[in-house]
Design a protein around this nucleic acid. Structure first.
Lengths: 186, 186
DNA sequence: TTGACTCCTTAACGATGTTAAGTCAACTTC
DNA sequence: GAAGTTGACTTAACATCGTTAAGGAGTCAA
């Protein structure tokens, strides 16, 4: 087992630079060559650390979701938690350029340990009194709405026109509230 | 002004064949060359009829949305209309392979006549007593939720695992009902 | 010193979207 | 019917893309 002192490249550094690249030039301009160029490295070098572009996108999406989970604190009941989570996910998606499109394209990084991951995801809602399957279903609803909305907000048809007719953020909040309030407890 | 009797290729035929190709091989395999090959034509020939791949995707997405609008009949109030529309859009998206991803990627075909298009879209809800801006906002909410859900259903993380834990269709309906019931009339 | 191992380079493969230039038949006009 | 115009397509090429194979330089253990 040999370990370099200065590995030069790291998975985290690659993902971080990928975010910077997307921020600068947009998701469509995210290519392995450009990404490598920004790190003064050849494109093939990235493949030593990451299996391919799909995994890169997966890791980026994971970071966006992680920020959303980190943005929920001290909810008293599961509806409040879902509202917090929805708002946090929306702001996480919106704070990264093309964030929604990225999460829409990205595939799950590890379909293998889905069960463990699902349990981990359902945990906060279970702690607030929801059954596991209901927790996952409700979270799926909130994620779907939020992801769909942010995408609609960013690239949807008539975007510029609708911008003048309504407050996107306020309308999102209304939709999120409606959705969460109507979800059944069982 | 010269007009051929048999133009050989048509926009509609191209779009139709694109749907067939996606149905057969998936959205990732939709390339101009393969599409042209299926019509016994060179790839560049497509560019005579369609400006590029972006427009092709836009036309495909437009067809999917059109099927959803066509699936709403005789609603008595705007909530019922939104429910019908949500269900129709869901089935339209689900009935085309990679339909949700397609609509997520596709850009609006014509940002120019957004105002006219918005009025046309808001019409059915206006006829049922909703103000134009509210109509658009509510429709945006339903589209966002439905598109997000269908995407989640198709490619989302833990898809296979969640499949066993819940009925996707039933859970979608619950979410849609919750959302629509909670939307304000004003 | 030898060998193993990590990390990166060079080079190449096939595929992609797109454009420019050329071709040819169908039509219009004279 | 000859000439010219134009619609529709072919051929060829360009730049770029994700990805892989082969190899080399550096670092550590023996």
């Amino acid at each position: 087992m040999v370990q370099r002192l200065i590995p030069g490249l790291t998975r985290d550094q690659i993902v971080a630079q990928a975010f910077v690249l997307v921020e600068d030039e947009g998701l469509d301009s995210l290519s392995m060559r450009k990404l490598a160029g920004r790190m003064n490295v050849q494109a093939a070098a990235i493949y030593w650390h990451i299996s391919g572009k799909a995994e890169l996108l997966g890791l980026m999406a994971r970071d966006i979701y992680a920020a959303a989970y980190a943005g929920t604190h001290g909810a008293q009941d599961w509806r409040e938690w879902l509202r917090q989570f929805g708002r946090a996910l929306h702001s996480s998606l919106a704070s990264h350029r093309d964030g929604a499109r990225l999460c829409a394209i990205a595939r799950p990084p590890s379909p293998a340990d889905a069960e463990k991951q699902a349990a981990h995801i359902a945990a906060p809602l279970k702690a607030l009194g929801l059954e596991a399957s209901v927790a996952l279903a409700h979270q799926a609803a909130v994620i779907s709405f939020t992801l769909g909305w942010t995408m609609f907000e960013a690239n949807g048809p008539m975007r510029d026109f609708l911008c003048e007719m309504m407050d996107f953020d306020a309308t999102f909040t209304i939709g999120l509230e409606s959705l969460v309030n109507g979800l059944p407890a069982k």
